[in-house]
Amino acid sequence: MVATKNDNQIKMSARKVCVSYSGKQALFNVDLDILHQSVTALIGPSGCGKSTFLRCLNRMNDYIEGCIFHGSVRIDGKDIYDPKLDVVELRARIGMVFQKPNPFPKSIYDNIAYGPQIHGLAKDKSELEEIVHTSLEKAGLLKEVKDRLQEPGTGLSGGQQQRLCIARAIAVSPEVILMDEPCSALDPIATAHVEELIDELRDNFTIVIVTHNMQQAARVSQNTAFFHLGNLVEYGATETIFTSPQDERTQGYITGRFG
């Protein structure tokens, strides 16, 4: 199905996205619009291509050997696969948070300062400090770490590490943040923390989140896309998807008959 919404709200749009890994096709003609400053959840059984689709949105698939992309992805109407487009700049606009928290083996401060530094977002040290503090604040981590900014980021707990990674993504002030199962390695309390955070971030950022946790999708997202075997089966308002799904595969999945 084609998922199109009111055009002026569309932040990113994917059209006819096909991806194959060394000849094995993982995504088939996916058309999907991502709405401005909202949370879009991608759900579906594992191996259905959620991560693959997410990684198409900031071209992280570029570095995977044998990965071939067809179709188009636009942000604010501009094709991100345009050969003239600078990937580095694109990634400054579209940040990413990964499944396993992956802070750099550096101090908490340096973890967050790195992005602004390489993009030249801070003119001097005090500006950089400001960015670090604001990012930690927005990620809800400042209170916990403000006295130990020079300590290694890898010394934090799993949940804190993941919020550190979110803060690191925020620090370059991206427009879109992609999250690939950001809570799957976290305990329920840390998960609740991150979910709250996602809800707050929606005010400033457009968020796309992959999750295998249906409750999570229902809790944090406004729109949900259900993938199955590389196809986008159904896409719509989260409420609609969870209360009255159109496709029986969607229904089967959200009621737990397969997954």
């Binding site: 580095v88 700049e89 990964f98 390489i118 620090a171 370059v172």
Partner: peptide, 11 residues
């Protein structure tokens, strides 16, 4: 994961 992290923020 370190490479991904760095690539992901635009290195």
């Amino acid at each position: 994961s370190i490479r991904e992290a760095a690539t992901g923020i635009g290195a």
